[in-house]
Amino acid sequence: MTEHTEAPTVGMGGIRDVVSVRLPAVSAYLSVLRTATAGLAARLDFTLDEIEDLRIAVDEACAMLLTQAVPGTDLTAEFELTGQEMQVRVEVSTVGTALPKRDEFAWMVLTALADDVDAVTDSPDRMAIVLRKRRGAARPA
C-alpha cells in the first residue's frame, strides 16, 4: 500500500486535504481501506453513524469495482476532504467497461449510505465510482 497526502491548502471553506491510497486490487485489502476511511472521516468530525456509513459505502464501491479489475493491478482511492464533505473516488483498471448495475443490491446499499454516487468511465480501460457524503446532511426517508 502506498499513501500520499498533498499539502493542505486552506481556502475560505476551511481545510481541503487530498489523500491518495493505492492498494492491490484484491478484496483482502478492503479492511485496510475501511480503516483508512474511518480515520479520515473522523478528521472531519463526522458523527459515528456518518463514519460507519462512509466505511460501508467505500467498501461497497470497491467490492463492485474489484469484480471488474484486471488481476495484478492496483485500486486507487482518492479522498478529498473539505470542511463539510468527503468525496471519495475509487478506481481500477478494467478490460472494457461494464458499469455497475444500478438495480444490484450492492448499488442500492451504496446509494442509501452516501449522499451522491456516480459511476465514471473516463477511459475505456478504467472504471471509477465517485461518492460524496456531507456532514450533517439530512437522509432521505
Binding site: 467490492a63 443490491f105 450492492a106 442500492m108 446499499v109
Partner: peptide
C-alpha cells in the same frame, strides 16, 4: 462488527 451487502445477501 461489520457486514456489507455480500454478507447481508
Amino acid at each position: 462488527d461489520f457486514i456489507d451487502s455480500s454478507g447481508l445477501r
